[in-house]
Amino acid sequence: MEMLAFLIPVALMLGLVGLVSFIWAVREGQFDDPDGAAARILIDEDHPAEQACK
């Protein structure tokens, strides 16, 4: 049972890290353009733009 004194805080801390990073992401506007974020990964910076779609 003594493990609980260790495990519960660890579980809560992990959850809290997730929550804080989510709030940070929302505030930063990371959810403002989901389609754009999905498309930008396909853009190859080293090549002409048109190649991204072929």
């Binding site: 403002d32 353009d33 989901p34 389609d35 754009g36 498309a39 930008r40 990964i41 396909l42 853009i43 733009a49 048109e50 991204a52 779609c53």
Partner: peptide, 27 residues
């Protein structure tokens, strides 16, 4: 699509003096 995105942003960025050109594909 991604092609549209980079085509539009790159051509506008190529204009003289443009410091930022960002297209939001969702809206």
């Amino acid at each position: 699509c991604a092609g549209c995105l980079s085509k539009i942003e790159k051509s506008v960025q190529a204009l003289p003096g443009v410091t930022q050109a960002r297209l939001n594909l969702s809206n």
